[in-house]
Each structure stands twice: as structure tokens, then as C-alpha cells.
Design a protein around this nucleic acid. Structure first.
Lengths: 339, 339
DNA sequence: CTGTTAGCGCGTTCAG
DNA sequence: CTGAACGCGCTAACAG
């Protein structure tokens, strides 16, 4: 672990000259440059970014703060972020909040301490405080995936309402009337948007929205299981389930199997977010799939643009289209049993 | 973005006193401490870790360098790492090499520049150079998942050979003789270990090892597809496939479906590494599953222990047991067609 | 209990 | 084309 001084000494120059060679800034004669370079090589010198950043006030580091690293949607998004960032010579720190506001707060503090240049934040809740905190500390923020109401901040997300509308309409057209909506947490914008789309589809079809079939819980397998159990207990039993994300769908599917119900014979099932084809043995679920990779890429590009920009531009909202994929998990509702 | 000096000024004390309050080191009288704390609060002061680390030579940061962030095995491992690290006040930087040696080298350089305290490395290849590099730079290393031959370094991995032996024996007992081994890259120790187990099982059963049924390719879906195609082209066709990891299993399964072959009626299939139950609709694959989370945890604990230790202890190898789970993907081979 | 001095490794002045 | 001096924000030694 040698320092710039060791290199300078070995090359018989000043540290400044070494610095110039390192950053290709200013003129250095060919022979001196050569001497410096061999010194660097023989010592195995690696510059200390800490010191550099302390001086330059820039760490060339971004952070991606997300709510669930085990969710393939976010893993895919993360790859998009990483790709763009490393193309631009930036490192990414990944932070997993597990939807916990406390964990999020802790992480943000650490990130400020580490002086990251920018943060890509999937907010754990609607609270504006965390974003204000970052902005006040002079750190660029781009919010990802979820809206935070009443906040002037850059945002990149997938379209939710329209896709949920289409998915629901799909079921209504097949003749379903009792569609249970297994939605995400009330304080997460994507959950609200998807419920919105669901409601609009009923309205557009001229039907009354079955409010008692709307459930809200966590975006997890366990949440999906809880909501599916509640939904199946309703009389008359729903003939279709709308899972508001992939994990909820999996939980719901577990419960359906427990009850000996098969898809789509007994019940139809649609979901938001696809599972990666590579992880599902036989993709059969009708889904609305968001361009996770692209969301990550766009968000990172926007963040990097902000970092380079001299003048602060007005916040921007980028909404990327969601695609509905029809597969085999939907069918007309079974004929009602004759009593 | 205020500094320690701003706080000191506002509290009417020296920076040193503020530092003492911050780190609870040395004595500070209650009233002064109070003044300092309110100054910190009103200014929204957050200490700059860069400067602190430059002084203390410790960043309280670890790095996890792995080969495929989309693989649930590694995601799970990563969570284990993160949990232990954050319990001890350490941050983790995740780096994804995509099995590329160049990408790995680049990342390691960045990590040295960032002065991370320790690295958890899933090596992209058998080459010892990267590990020497880290050690020479005075950075603690724990190798994870894969052995690097002829190197004195801490290692935490799952057991492979015995589990592969059991999986193969399972198939042999069912009457399979032509078991194709779809293995990972030649220069990755886990791949070698699993092939070893496979060979031993044949030997223990007193049968000749069908060398022409051993294939080696990448640990990916595409690799699995390629190997499965080759395996199915062999005459007589194998009656069982052994996929050496989860992604290979998925690729193999794709090809089986293409060929209109069903599992386990036409062919049996076993695999190393499970898919998370939450991501498979109906788990049916017989697998050897490694305690990924525990591997991550143990590796991190070992690394942290090394960081605290005064005297360097001899390298340690921790091998965690792998569990075989029998599910529905295995059956006796179909009766040979009558000619 | 508190303040002063010095320096971590580097890059940015500004002179040579 | 090259070097000397200074300071980024913080803490380890010393004083007092």
C-alpha cells in the first residue's frame, strides 16, 4: 500500500508530477512520464480515492436504495443501473430497505456520510422527509418506481394505471364480474395506481366496482397469501384474482393450490410484473410487465445528467410503457353450480 | 452541508470537542455535550466519512464481488452478507462480474481505490493473481463458494462432491445408467467437485463412468440449453440429466420441452441449487440445496473476525453441508422400446 | 474536561 | 514543463 509520495520519490519527481500523470492533466515530458509510470507499476501503486474525493468533493459513486432485493423486478432494475453507471465510471452502492422506513433512514445517513454523488431511491413510503434530507445535504436524487406526492423531484417509473385497466378489462370481457384485487400497501403509489386502473375498468364497462373485493397488504408472498385467503372467503366467491405484483401472485397461487383450485379452470389469475422467464418452469401467467431494466437505465442517465449539469433544471417525470402479455391463466368464469 | 467546524463554531467549542461527542471518545461535560448536540441537530450536520477514513485508515466498508447477481443463490448469499455486515456497522458494496475476469479485475482495483476494509470474493476463475493483488494491498479477503487451488486464503463454501454423489446415486438406484452430467466451467472448482461426486457414484455402484455423457459449459440458462441439446443427441439417449446448477437446470428443461419430453415420465432431472420456492410455481425438482444465506453469513463473520484480530491467524476453510431434497422429477427409466 | 498542533493522501493554486 | 505550499474534513497526540 504505497502512496503518491512513494511513487514520486522512486521516480525522482514531485508528487505533483505523479498526479499529473495519473489524471492526464497538464503537461509532462515523455521521459518523466515514463519514469513515473514504471514507478507506479513496480510499486503496484493504486491511488486512494478517499483522499482524492475529499479534495474534489466528488466520489463518482451512486447509490441505489430499493425495497426488496429478492424481487426479480428490482434485480433487473439494478442491473440496468449498474450497466449505465459503470459505463460512466461510476460505482454503485446497493441498499436494501426491506420496505422499512427506519432502515431507509439509516441507509440514507450512511450514504450522506459516504458523500455519494447521487441517490436512486425507491421510497419505502410516501413521506417526503427522506428526499428533503438528501436534497438539503446537496445530494442529487432521482425517485424510481414510486411517486411521492407533492414533491418536486425527478421521477422514473413504469406505467401502472392503464396496464391495470387493460388487465381488468381483459377479465371483464371474459365474463368475470367478481374480480378480487389483491393490491399493495396503501402508502405506495404503484398500489394506488393499480387499484385505480381496476376501478376505471369496471366503470368503463358500466359495472359497479365491487369495493369489498379490494384488499391491500404488503407486496410479498405472505401478503398475497393473506389477501387470497380473505378473497376466497367472500360469498359469492370471486371468479378471478388480480395480483398487484409478482410476489402477491405467487402467494395467491399457493393458496389456490391449498384450496384445490386450479387456474384457469376454477379461477382466473392475472398479475402485475412478470417473473423472469428463466425462473418460471412454464410461463402461463397473464401479466403486465414493466421494462425494469430500462427504468433503471433511464433513471441513472437522468441522475448522471443532473450531476454534470451546471444549472439546475426543473424536475422531470419519465413514465415508461408497461406491456400486457396474455398467457394461459385466464378463461371465462366457470358456470355457476345449480342448486 | 456543514462541516465539523461549523458545528464547533455554533456551539462555541473546538472541533476536537465536537469530534469527541460524535465518537463518544474522551470526556465531555454534560452542558457542552448538550450544546454540541443541539448545534448538530439544528445544522443537520452529518460527519464526512471520507475524511474520517482518511485519518483512521478504516472505511467500515466491505465488498461482495460475485459472478451473477441474477442468480437467486447469490442474491440469497448477498442478503446473508448484508445482514451480518450491517449488524456490525459495516456497509457492503456489491459488484457483479458476470463471470468476466476483466470485469473482476476492474472492480478489485476500484475497491482498493475506495480502501474497503475487506473483500468477499466469488472468484471468476482459478487464477490466484486477483487474490494476491488484494492481499498485497493490505486488504482482507475471504473467498466464497469456489476454491482457488494452491492458495492460502480463508474460504467458505457449500459441500459439493458428497451431495452430487448422493444425487447421482439416487438416479442409479432407480435404474438409470445413462445419466448425462451438465456441468459448469472447467476452471470453476464447484463444477469439478460436482463432476467428481458424479464419477464416484458410478464407481461405488460398480459401473463404468460414461465419460461421453459429461458436458461442461457456462453456469447459465444458455449453457444448460447447449449441453442438453448435445446430451439428447447421444445414442442411446440418456434417461436422466444432472444439471450442475439451477440455471443449467432451467435451460435443460426448456430443451426437454422443445423435444416434447416430459419429466419424469420420459426423462428424470436433478439439479444442484434450488430455486427459491417463492419463484417456482410448483416445486417439483429433486435438488441438492446449499445454505446460501449461511454461507454469506459465515463468510462475513470470518472476514470481520480477521479485521478485528491483531495477529494474523492461519487461513481457515469452512465447508457447509448441502441438503438433498427429493421431489417429483425422478422416476425409473422408461422401458426401452422394443425393436 | 478542553483546546492546539499536526497530518492522513491527494489536487489545486501559483511560482519558477 | 516542473515543484512548493496549502487545504479538503477529520482525529491522534499532546498540552493545559
Amino acid at each position: 500500500m504505497s502512496t503518491i509520495r512513494d511513487v514520486a520519490q522512486r521516480a525522482g519527481v514531485s508528487t505533483m508530477t505523479v498526479s499529473r500523470v495519473l489524471n492526464s492533466t497538464g503537461y509532462v515530458s515523455q521521459p518523466t512520464r515514463q519514469r513515473v509510470e514504471t514507478a507506479i507499476a513496480t510499486l503496484g501503486y493504486v491511488p486512494n480515492t478517499l483522499a482524492r474525493s475529499l479534495r474534489s468533493k466528488r466520489t463518482k459513486t451512486l447509490a441505489l436504495v430499493l425495497t426488496d432485493i429478492t424481487n426479480p423486478f428490482f434485480t433487473t432494475l439494478a442491473r440496468g443501473v449498474e450497466d449505465v453507471a459503470s459505463d460512466h465510471g461510476f460505482t454503485v452502492i446497493f441498499c436494501n430497505t426491506d420496505e422499512s422506513i427506519d432502515a431507509q433512514e439509516e441507509y440514507l445517513t450512511v450514504l450522506v456520510q459516504k458523500q455519494v454523488d447521487g441517490v436512486l431511491l425507491v421510497p419505502a413510503s410516501d413521506a417526503p422527509a427522506p428526499i428533503h434530507f438528501l436534497q438539503q445535504q446537496g445530494i442529487a436524487v432521482v425517485v424510481v418506481d414510486r411517486q411521492v406526492p407533492g414533491l418536486a423531484v425527478d421521477l422514473v417509473r413504469g406505467e401502472s394505471t392503464q396496464a391495470a385497466y387493460e388487465l381488468t378489462t381483459q377479465l371483464l370481457k371474459l365474463g368475470h364480474q367478481q374480480i378480487a384485487m389483491l393490491a399493495g400497501p396503501v402508502d405506495v403509489s404503484t398500489a394506488r395506481d393499480r387499484v385505480d386502473g381496476y376501478r376505471r375498468a369496471y366503470a368503463a364497462a358500466g359495472q359497479r366496482v365491487p369495493e369489498s373485493l379490494i384488499f391491500q397488504d404488503a407486496y410479498t408472498v405472505a401478503g398475497g397469501e393473506r389477501m387470497a385467503r380473505l378473497a376466497l372467503a367472500v360469498t359469492p366467491r370471486p371468479t378471478a384474482l388480480f395480483a398487484a405484483n409478482n410476489f402477491i401472485a405467487i402467494g395467491a397461487y399457493h393458496v389456490l393450490r391449498e384450496h384445490g383450485l386450479s387456474v384457469p379452470t376454477d379461477l382466473s389469475l392475472v398479475a402485475f410484473d412478470d417473473l423472469p422467464h428463466s425462473l418460471a418452469w412454464e410461463p402461463f401467467l397473464t401479466v403486465a410487465t414493466q421494462p425494469a431494466d430500462l427504468i433503471g437505465r433511464k433513471a441513472t442517465e437522468l441522475l448522471l445528467a443532473r450531476l454534470c449539469a451546471e444549472a439546475p433544471a426543473p424536475p422531470q417525470e419519465i413514465v415508461l410503457p408497461t406491456r400486457v402479455i396474455i398467457r394461459r391463466s385466464c378463461a371465462p368464469p366457470p358456470l355457476p353450480a345449480i342448486h
